[in-house]
């Protein structure tokens, strides 16, 4: 796998240097790496990365947090579920970027509209997975809990939260991945700073090596956030066993 990838990179390098492919659009990988290094050193990458991470984290915290709360509420109360399920189902597939102009008008041109869109993106997978997480708790466990007198807060803390946690974490993963995509996209649309804005600027100036360098950073970011979540899952779910 690694050999295959390296082979491709070598071929790309060769093709770009030999002029078989347009260097303007497909700069050689070594150039991309050097550019990445330069961007790291000269320092416009770090603040952009920090800002993107900030938007991502804030959006996910708000969106995934409220999504999980609503999911648990819908899972615990039949009437809430019946009332909200059609709304959630109808709103979920709306393309989030299409709503962005409306957010701009509602929330203004600052950070709020961007973070809100990221939050909205993180919200839906979280509601849906949390609800599914509650619903997949075994009937026997509900019965056992009820029989041993679990109600209200205790039921929530000891049964509903831990029982739904595996799917909640799956939801979180989907939420983070979706949110990362939307963060970058929103930054490309309307931000002057952040990784998305760097991509946009790189394309605007046709400095494609910078474009690839930022894409590389985003790829690593995705990889890192997913490994982190995987690690968290293993920590939080010792009862799931190794898979």
């Amino acid at each position: 796998m690694a050999a295959f990838a390296l082979g491709w990179l070598a071929l790309w390098e060769l093709a770009a240097r030999a002029g078989w492919i347009s260097r303007l659009f497909f700069p050689p990988p070594t150039t991309i790496l050097l550019t990445l290094g330069r961007m790291l050193v000269t320092g416009n990458l770090a603040p952009a990365l920090a800002l993107t991470l900030y938007r991502l984290a804030l959006g996910v915290a708000i969106g995934a947090g409220s999504g999980a709360l609503l999911g648990w509420l819908m899972g615990s109360s039949r009437s809430v579920r019946l009332a909200l399920d059609p709304i959630v189902t109808a709103l979920h597939p709306l393309p989030k970027l299409a709503i962005f102009p409306i957010f701009l008008v509602l929330l203004g041109i600052g950070e709020a509209s961007k973070v809100a869109l990221v939050a909205l993106t993180a919200f839906f997978p979280m509601v849906i997975n949390t609800l599914a997480g509650v619903q997949q708790i075994d009937t026997t466990h509900w019965e056992a809990a009820a029989n041993y007198g679990a109600r209200g807060r205790a039921l929530l803390q000891r049964i509903i939260l831990p029982g739904s946690l595996p799917l909640v974490l799956v939801g979180l993963r989907l939420a983070v991945n979706g949110a990362l995509m939307v963060t970058i996209a929103v930054e490309m649309l309307s931000a002057r700073e952040g990784l998305g804005a760097l991509i946009w600027l790189a394309w605007q100036t046709l400095r494609t090596e910078e474009l690839y360098a930022v894409l590389l950073v985003i790829g690593v970011l995705g990889l890192a956030s997913n490994s982190l979540l995987e690690l968290t899952s293993q920590r939080l779910l010792p009862w799931k066993g190794e898979t």
Binding site: E143, N147, Y148, R158
Partner: peptide, 27 residues
């Protein structure tokens, strides 16, 4: 009145000790 089920009624997310203590905890 306390029920003992066919199988798989222990809460998988609790240790055996917490499972056994569950009824007491709820009391």
């Amino acid at each position: 009145r306390r029920l003992v089920f066919q199988e798989h009624s222990l809460f998988p997310w609790m240790t055996v000790l917490d499972n056994v203590a569950f009824g007491l905890e709820m009391e």
